[in-house]
Design a protein around this nucleic acid. Sequence first.
RNA 1: GCGCCCGUAGCUCAGUCGGAUAGAGCAUCAGCCUUCUAAGCUGAGGGUCGCUGGUUCGAUUCCAGCCGGGCGCACCA
Length: 584
Amino acid sequence: MTQGVVQDKVSAALVGALRLAQQRGLLKLEQLPAVNLEAPKRPEWGDVSSTVAMSLSASERRPPFEIAQIIIDHIEQRDALFNRVEIARPGFLNLTVKRQLWMEVLHEIEAQGAGYGHSQIGQGHRVLVEYVSANPTGPLHVGHGRGAAVGQALVRLLKATGHEVVSEYYINDAGRQMKLLGVSVLARYMEFCGKTVSFPEDGYQGEYIRAVAARVKAENGEALLSLPPVEAEQRSREFAYRELLALIRQDLETFGIAFESWFSEASLLSSGGVDQVLSELKARDLLFDQDGAQWFRSSAFGDEKDRVVRKQEGDYTYLASDIAYHRDKLLRGFDMLVDVWGADHHGYIPRMQAVVQAYGYPKERLRVVLVQMVNLLRGGQKVEMSKRAGEFITLREVMDEVGADAAKFFFLMRDSSTHLDFDLELAKQQSQENPVYYVQYAHARIASLRRVAASRGIDCPLPSQADLDLLQDPDELALIRKLSAFPVVLQASAVELEPHRMAYYLRELAGMLHPFYNKHRILPPAPESEAAVASSTDPAACTSRQHEGVTPGLTAARLALMWSVQQVVRNGLNVLGVSAPEHM
RNA sequence: GCGCCCGUAGCUCAGUCGGAUAGAGCAUCAGCCUUCUAAGCUGAGGGUCGCUGGUUCGAUUCCAGCCGGGCGCACCA
C-alpha cells in the first residue's frame, strides 16, 4: 500500500523517528502506529501533515504536543527532507517537504506510465465480479446501464490493484419470467395472424415484444398456430430468448463492455446441479419440508426467516438456483464474490450471505454493491417511465443521445447507493457544466498544446529530460501534489468498491489544470502575438494575463508537467472505462 | 409494525481508522476573449452538517432516541 512516493518517504522518516525515540526510552510504543499522512486544507499548514502524535497521546499518557516535539527531534536527515517542520495546536505535525522531493512524483509517473497508480495490494486474490445479469426478456434500460458502468469500473479498479478478476453475466434463462416471455410473444404472434387473444395479465407489454413476434411470423409463417400450445409457446420462448440476449450483448458491446464469462441458470438446472446442492444441504439438516414446500434454514445464519427453495407445485424458486450458482462460484476458487445488484434487492443480501455461510465461508466473502435508481431528466424535467406499461428509456436510447462515454461518467459520478439525477441535456452539452467534457477536455487540451508545440518545432520532453528545478510556482507544486494523490485514490476506490471517488478526483484534477493553463503561459507567445504585445502602448492591456518570462527551459519543464497531468487523467479515465480523447 | 439506506449551501452531492476556520459543481451576481482550444478562467454572496441527548481534549463522522424521505418485508425475479 503506497501513499505516494513522497508520502512514503515522509512516513518512513516519521516511523524512523518514533523508533529512535523508543530506543532512547522517550516513548513506550507498545505497538508502532501506522503513520498516515493527509494533505492539509490550508497552505500555511505545510504540504503534508500527520495526526500521529495525537493518536499516541492516550497510550503514552502524555500531551500530544510533547509527543510531537519528541518525534521531530528524532527525524534523521530532517534538513534533507523538509523545509519546515512545525507543530500546530493540539499536536498536528505540519511538514513542508523540499520542492525537489516533490519532483519525484513526475519521475514516478514517467517510469510507470500507464501503470502509474496501479499496485499489487490485491496480489493473490481471485475475485469474481458479477454484474448486469439482466433477464433476457427485454432490452437493457437505464438502470442496467448504471449497473454495467459500476461493474466494469470495479473490474478495472480491482485489476489495477493486482487482483485476479473475472467478470461474469448470470443469465436468468429459466423460470417464470422466461415462461411469461414465451406467452407474451406467442400472444402477439397470434394477433399478427389475425386471431383475437386475451393478452396474459403479467405479460411483457413492451413494443419490442411485437417486434420479436413479427420476426417469429416472418420466419415461421402461421405454422405455430397448428402446433400444440405448449410447443408453440416453447418455440416462441426460445426464439425470443435468442433475439433478446443477442440484443443485450450488442447493447453492452456498444457501451464498451465485454464479459469474460456468461453463466446460464438453465444449465445449472439441466445439469442436476441444483438438485445435488439441495440434497447436500438436506443431508446437513439445512433444508426442511413444511406446508408442502421445501425450505432453506437461512435463519440459522442471521436471516430474519427461512426461505422457500421448492414451491408446493414442485418448481424451484429463484433462490434455489442462486444457491447453486453461488456455490459454483465459491468452488471455482474465488476468495471474494462481488455482486452488483439493483438497490431494490437489498432485502436479498442476508439470505445470500446465509448461503455463503452455509458453505462454511465468512459472510464477508460476498460483497454486494447496490446500485440505486436513475432519475432521467431532460433540461431539468423528469422523464416519466412506466415499467409496467413497458415504457422505459433503454440504455440504447441514452447512448444514442449522449454517447457511451458521457453516460458512463454520469453513472459513476455519484456513490452507486444513492439516487442519481441524470440530465440528458446536460450530458450531451459540451460545456463546463458537463463534468465529462470538463475532464476529457483537460486531456484533449494538453494534447492540443503538444500539437501546437510540435508545429512550432518545440520539443515536448519527458520529466527526466527537463530541468524540473524551474518549476518554482506554487500552482505547479499544487498540481504535482494532486498527482501524487492518484495512487491513494485508486486504491481506496478499489478497496471500498466505490468508483465515484475516482470520478471526483478527476473532476478536481481537471479543476486545477484548466485554471493553471489559463493563468500560466506554457509555450512562448506565437511570433504574431509577440509583435502585437510589443506594439501595444497600453501596459494595462497585459496585466490580466501575464505572459511571464517563459524561457525555453521553463517551457520544457511545464510541458513535462503537462505530460504528467495528461498521463494521470488518462489513467483515471481508463480505470472508469471512459475514453481520453486527443481532440474535442 | 420490523429491517436496510439516506437527511451537509437555493439545487445535485463529496467528506470511511473521530481532528484544525465544513468543501466542490451547478444556479445567482460582478468581471475576463487580437493569446497554447472562452468546450475556458477570475471574484462575490450563500451553512444551527434533520432534531435532542450521550461518549471524547475534540463529533458532520461513533452511540441512543425522535422527526422527515426512500426501499424492502413472496411458495416473483
